[in-house]
Amino acid sequence: MRRKAGSLVPLEISILDTGIELAVRGAPYFHGFLIAKEIKESEDARLLTAHGTLYKALDRMQKAGLLESEWEDPLAAAADGRPRRRLYRVTVAGATALAKARAPERVGATLKPETGSATP
């Protein structure tokens, strides 16, 4: 079954959300393991996102223009003694898609009646 064009699945929302959160904290670029770790911590999950699920989503999101990526300078990675990272960044289209995906939630929250509150 194909999903509706332009809609985001929960993992994509988590990736965009976390990517923007990291950017706000001053780290606009993230790599696969970092995003998996941040999602696990923010959602209090027991496991990190599976390799296949994570990288397939990142690949799909990049093709959709929600993310852009570039490979880290090999010399920088070698200086740290680790494999080079593929660094992703949320694009304007990604942020817009997240805002659209979030919009129905906000509307729902606004319309939800508050129990015990005085209504005019």
Binding site: L47, L48, T49, A50, H51, G52, T53, L54, Y55, K56
Partner: peptide, 8 residues
């Protein structure tokens, strides 16, 4: 992580 991602 490897096993759960095999299908994807």
């Amino acid at each position: 992580r490897m096993l759960l991602g095999i299908f994807d």
